[in-house]
């Protein structure tokens, strides 16, 4: 019984040690040939600043359509458009904040 409890605690703490981005985004993107880093650069190229990038991403996650995707036609033809997100606004914001912090250009240039 003690072993079961300990194993459960280890598993639960493992899940919650990941941030929102890792919890909600990474798994689905594992299968795709383009990294999340490259996708971030696509969004940055189109939307510019932090607020615009986050707003554009959030909108696409909630209402994904071909016309507003930043990915190439070839990519969409091969992998299609993602399904509408099931995450709440709070979860999306949390994941996007984490995503921004991880890949932002500011402070990385030398």
């Amino acid at each position: 019984m003690v072993k079961v409890i300990l194993i459960s605690i280890v598993l639960v703490s493992g899940v919650y040690s990941e941030d929102a981005y890792e919890r909600y985004c990474v798994d689905c993107h594992k299968e795709l040939p383009t990294s999340l880093q490259r996708m971030f650069m696509h969004y940055l190229l189109v939307y510019g600043g932090e607020k615009n990038v986050k707003a554009g991403l959030k909108h696409y996650l909630k209402y994904p359509i071909r016309e507003i995707s930043v990915m190439s036609d070839l990519f969409i033809d091969n992998y299609g458009i993602k399904k509408k997100t099931t995450l709440s606004d709070k979860q999306i914001d949390e994941a996007l904040n984490s995503y921004w912090e991880r890949f932002k250009v500011i402070d990385k240039l030398k």
């Binding site: 880093q37 650069m41 510019g48 600043g49 932090e50 607020k51 615009n52 250009v105 500011i106 240039l109």
Partner: peptide, 27 residues
């Protein structure tokens, strides 16, 4: 090529800076 290269391009003839759409300094 970002992430593979992070060296900001320099030129002896001038100095430069980049700012985002919200006037926040990038470099």
């Amino acid at each position: 090529f970002f992430d593979e290269r992070v060296e900001y391009p320099r030129d002896p003839r001038f100095r430069s800076a980049i700012y985002d759409i919200e006037h926040i300094k990038i470099f």
